[in-house]
Amino acid sequence: MSVLDLLLRLVLLLACFLVLPLVVGQIEHKAMAHMQSRLGPMYAGGFHGWAQLVADGVKFAQKEDVLPAAADPWVFRLAPALALLPYLVVLALIPVGAGQAVVSADVGIFLVLAVMGIGIIGTVMAGWASANKFSVLGALRAAAQLLSYELPLVLAAASVAMAAGTLSLPGIVEAWRPWWLLWQLPGALIFLVAGLAELSRSPFDMPVAESEIIFGAYTEYAGLRFALFLLAEYAGIVVLGALTTVLFLGGWKWPFLVGGLGWLWTLVKTLAVAFLVIWLRVSLPRLREDQLQRLAWAWLVPLALVQLMITGVVRVMG
């Protein structure tokens, strides 16, 4: 891999990282609006409000940079970057087509799951540095949520890794067969639910429950830093979709149109998962904190263990 090649890949990665979350955000605007019998943005950009998020970005950039008097300035400023960057790293590891990943690592799945957990430190930093009780509460809720849901997430991912017999993400896609859809179905569902919870997305958005703690850890943020947190949320949806695609939906594989256009299928599947995430947000009410913890420990962890057992049995028998 030459330097030029690597540079090109990095530029592509950065473009994807900046554009895809906006695409997901726009889908959310429009899909949510139509699910509520509204139209959503219609003016920005002329055609069905396609440039709404660009306009939002411009608006955020123009806003005042507010730093609370009691805040810890450095931690406060650093937090959004720390929330956003892990997703960039994870996206770099996603194989979009056969041999088409920006960076390939033999222990990809391990690295991805480890790095994804770092994002929460950004949230905790934001909550603590804001010197606001709602922020601290939100940050601690987010941290507790991550701790609970990391276990089922890792167990579900481990089940796939065991089925494929490899920790490398491209290796998992290579080994993937269509019947895995059924075999790994519980694992896929657990992964998706746990991933939603890690992103603090509805119905697991207790950490930012606006009716109780305003906007959780992001209460004191405004302008570009707030935009970065929002971007991190949508980048998280993209990453969750991409990971679900790679681990459970066969990545670039499809019954037809395989040659060279595998990345397109990865994209389609990722966006389909993103749509599901949006759909769940529109349809389901927020879980209470205790219900949320109960779901993780009383349902997802045992189910994930059962999935792991099924995988093991099929592997040994097959």
Binding site: A31, A33, H34, M35, Q36, S37, R38, L39, W279, L280, V282, S283, L284
Partner: peptide
């Protein structure tokens, strides 16, 4: 989920 999806397929009343 079914309700929201059905609503999405209909014309909005806006």
């Amino acid at each position: 989920l079914a309700t929201t999806f059905r609503t999405m397929t209909r014309r909005s009343i806006t």
